[in-house]
Amino acid sequence: MLAIVAAIVFGLAFLLALIGSSIGISTTALIALGLCLLALHQAGIGTSSVGSWRGGYRRTRR
């Protein structure tokens, strides 16, 4: 989920840089926010454990 939010923040920063506009926060700050969100995603913060492998990989034999 945080990776999706980071992609949106990066996209917004890119569009603002292209049109040369400002929304009260610099594009550098938006890029730093996006990198922070990606770091949190890589650390496992904000991930869901529902539907995970629970107990490891189990192989069924037929």
Rank of each mutant, 00 (worst) to 15 (best):
S26H: 00
S48I: 09
G11V: 03
S26P: 04
S22R: 02
G24I: 01
L16R: 01
G11E: 05
G46N: 10
Y57V: 14
L40R: 01
F14I: 04
R58Q: 11
F10R: 15
G46S: 07
I8W: 02
L35I: 15
R59N: 06
L30P: 05
A29F: 06
S48Q: 04
A7R: 11
T47H: 05
V5N: 13
F14D: 02
G55S: 10
A32Y: 08
Y57F: 13
R58V: 07
A29H: 06
G11T: 11
A6M: 09
S52C: 04
A13L: 01
T60E: 04
F10Y: 12
C36K: 03
A6K: 07
Q42D: 05
T47M: 02
Y57D: 09
L33A: 15
G24C: 04
V50I: 14
G55D: 03
I4Q: 14
L18A: 14
G51D: 12
W53E: 11
G46K: 07
S22W: 00
L2H: 13
T47L: 02
L35A: 15
S21G: 14
A3I: 05
T28N: 12
C36M: 12
I31L: 14
I4A: 15
G24F: 01
A13W: 00
G11I: 01
L40W: 02
M1C: 10
L37Y: 10
T47D: 03
G56H: 10
A29I: 12
Q42I: 13
A13E: 00
A6R: 05
L38W: 07
T60C: 03
G51V: 02
I45P: 10
V50H: 10
W53D: 13
G51C: 04
S52Y: 06
W53I: 06
G20P: 11
F14T: 07
G46T: 06
L38Q: 12
G34N: 08
I19M: 10
C36Y: 10
Y57R: 12
A13D: 01
I19P: 00
L15M: 08
L37T: 07
G56V: 03
S21R: 06
Q42E: 09
A17S: 12
H41Q: 12
L18M: 14
T60I: 08
R54E: 06
A13T: 02
V9D: 04
Q42Y: 14
Y57P: 03
W53L: 11
G44Y: 02
G44F: 01
I4Y: 05
G11K: 03
S21T: 08
G51A: 07
V5D: 15
A3D: 13
A32K: 09
G34S: 10
I31E: 03
A7S: 15
A3F: 04
R61H: 08
F14S: 10
L16P: 01
A32H: 03
I25S: 08
R58D: 07
I23W: 06
V9Q: 06
G55L: 07
G56A: 11
L37Q: 09
A29K: 05
G34F: 02
S49A: 07
A39I: 15
L38C: 15
A3T: 11
L2R: 15
L33K: 05
A3P: 09
L37W: 04
R58F: 00
T47K: 08
L38P: 07
L33P: 08
R59K: 14
